[in-house]
Amino acid sequence: MATDNSNSTYETYYVPESSKFPIWASLGLSLFMIGLANALNGIKSGDGAGGATIVAILGFAILGTVLFNWFATSIRENHQGLPSAQLKRSYVLGMYWFIFSEVMFFAAFFGALFYVRQWAVPWLGGEGGRGSSNILWPGFEAVWPVIANPSDALFVPPHESMEWRGWGEALGYLPMWNTIILLSSSVTVHFAHAGLKNNNRKQLIGWLSLTVLLGVVFIFLQAEEYIEAYQELGLTLDSGIYGSTFFLLTGFHGFHVTLGAFMLSVMLARSIKGHFKPEDHFGFEAASWYWHFVDVVWVCLFFFVYLY
């Protein structure tokens, strides 16, 4: 094939010949979903989850194994120098747009929270003369946080919410500590990145370990908060719209923190193994972008779920 002069410096874009990963990943994902759906339906109908749980776990294990090998293969390919600079740009773009889609996922939940607070609950309280709710639940008073539901019989309300309790109780207020922890962890991961770029291994591993540690402490405190909510405040998933939005938002955020912390620990292990170079460490950067993203979500959450 005659190569045009202008393209003589062109680096081949690496396209793997074929791959067995995706089909196995699809299979694992499907087993996981089928198992989970059957388990949930079993529990709801009173028959219990039964063997469905095993199917779900099996599916999850397959999915996990495949993804592990998939990533391992990409890393190996990178060590062999297969990806060109152009392919690496594709990875970067892929991660950007993935994070964008995650932003939109949270946007849906924040939107729901705003709608409920701004419109649904006030209307239930009879505001705006659209009184249908006045007929159904005449006594309902619209206040946020909702600690008296339209129907307290169907949805047993919490005795107390998770709102900010004033400076007097600030020291015992877990969400505040969690804010401090997560914000600091964004700084520490930045220091780790700086260490990586300066080829300073000690700085990289030290700060990255601290970041992972902060992430774990965050998850631990969040769990503590949930226990308090369930055991002391009567604040549960089924305690009405306040509990619903509270647990949906903080729960999915907590899940993302867990994922982010897991990604960072993988990066820590890879740093210790010496995978990264000052000019080539996309894996690390992707994990740290993700970490900054969960941090930003938390700040919005702290403001709109706890403070305001």
């Binding site: 949930l40 529990i43 709801k44 729901a112 709608y115 409920v116 419109w119 649904a120 609950v121 209307w123 239930l124 709710s133 159904l136 639940w137 909702v146 539901n149 339209p150 129907s151 169907l154 949805f155 549960t236 998933l237 089924d238 009405g240 719209i241 306040y242 509990g243 619903s244 939005t245 647990f247 949906l248």
Partner: peptide, 19 residues
């Protein structure tokens, strides 16, 4: 709403089907 008892779309718990 179906499996974990939340009330996003149930007005009895302060939610809203219109949401």
């Amino acid at each position: 709403d179906v499996h974990f008892g939340t009330s996003f779309f149930n007005a009895a718990g302060g939610g809203d089907p219109v949401l």
